[in-house]
C-alpha cells in the first residue's frame, strides 16, 4: 500500500470532486427533469413536443458523446465555461432525460382523478402539478429515481477524460505511477464508489419509508 504515501490527500480530493459533480448534477438534473416531465404532460402542445424531442435526443445519445459535445464542440461554438460547470452541464443534459422519464412514469401512476379534483377546485396547471401530482409522483418514483442517480454517480467517471481530476482520473494517475500496486489501488477506489452508492441507496430507502402514503 505504498501508493498511499503522500497520496491520501489526492485521493480524497478526487472523491471530493466526484461528490461535487454528483451533488450539483443531481440537483440540476432533478430540477430540469421535473420541468421536462411537467412539459410532457402539460396541455400546451409545443411544450409537450419540445420535451419529447429533448428526451429522445439525450436519452439515446451515449454520455461520452454528450461530453465531447460540451467539452470539444461547445467551446468552438463560443459556449465555453469553467471545467466544473461543463462537467455538470454534460451530466445534467444527459441525466435529466432519464429523470424526466422516471418522473413521467410516476406521474402516470397518480390516478387521473387526483388531477381532475385539483383542477376542479380551481388550481392552475402549475399549482395542480406542484401541489397534488408531483408530490405523489415523487413517492412512486423514489426507487427508479434512485437507480437513475446511482447510475449518474458512476457516470461521473466519464469526466476523468475531460479535464476533471475526480476519483477515476486520480486512480489512473496512481496506477500509472504505481503499476505494481494496480490491484490494491483499484480496490481502494472501488470501495470509495461503493460507499457513495450505498449511502445513496440508504438515503433512498429512508425517504421511501418516510414518504410512504399513509
Amino acid at each position: 500500500m505504498t501508493f498511499l504515501d503522500g497520496n491520501v490527500g489526492l485521493i480524497l480530493q478526487g472523491f471530493w470532486l466526484t461528490i461535487q459533480l454528483l451533488v450539483l448534477s443531481g440537483i440540476c438534473s432533478i430540477v430540469l427533469g421535473t420541468l421536462l416531465a411537467a412539459a410532457r404532460v402539460s396541455p400546451v402542445p409545443l411544450l409537450r413536443g419540445a420535451a419529447v424531442v429533448y428526451v429522445s435526443i439525450f436519452r439515446n445519445t451515449p454520455l461520452l458523446v454528450v461530453f465531447i459535445f460540451v467539452f470539444i464542440a461547445g467551446p468552438r461554438l463560443g459556449l465555453n465555461y469553467p471545467f466544473l460547470v461543463k462537467g455538470v452541464l454534460a451530466m445534467t443534459l444527459y441525466t435529466s432525460a432519464f429523470v424526466a422519464e422516471a418522473l413521467r412514469s410516476g406521474i402516470n401512476s397518480v390516478p387521473v382523478g387526483q388531477a381532475e379534483a385539483a383542477r376542479s377546485i380551481g388550481l392552475t396547471f402549475g399549482q395542480c402539478m406542484r401541489e397534488v401530482v408531483m408530490p405523489q409522483a415523487l413517492r412512486a418514483v423514489i426507487p427508479p429515481m434512485a437507480s437513475v442517480l446511482i447510475a449518474m454517480a458512476k457516470n461521473t467517471s466519464v469526466a476523468a477524460a475531460f479535464g476533471l481530476a475526480e476519483a477515476t482520473a486520480t486512480m489512473r494517475g496512481l496506477t500509472n505511477n504505481n503499476a505494481n500496486e494496480r490491484l490494491m489501488i483499484f480496490l481502494v477506489f472501488a470501495l470509495g464508489y461503493i460507499v457513495i452508492v450505498e449511502l445513496m441507496s440508504f438515503a433512498a430507502n429512508r425517504l421511501e419509508r418516510r414518504w410512504r402514503v399513509a
Partner: peptide, 15 residues
Amino acid sequence: RGFDTYSECRDQVLD
C-alpha cells in the same frame, strides 16, 4: 486538466 489523448489536449490549447 487530464484528457484521454494528446490530440484532445492539443485541441483544448487551440480552442
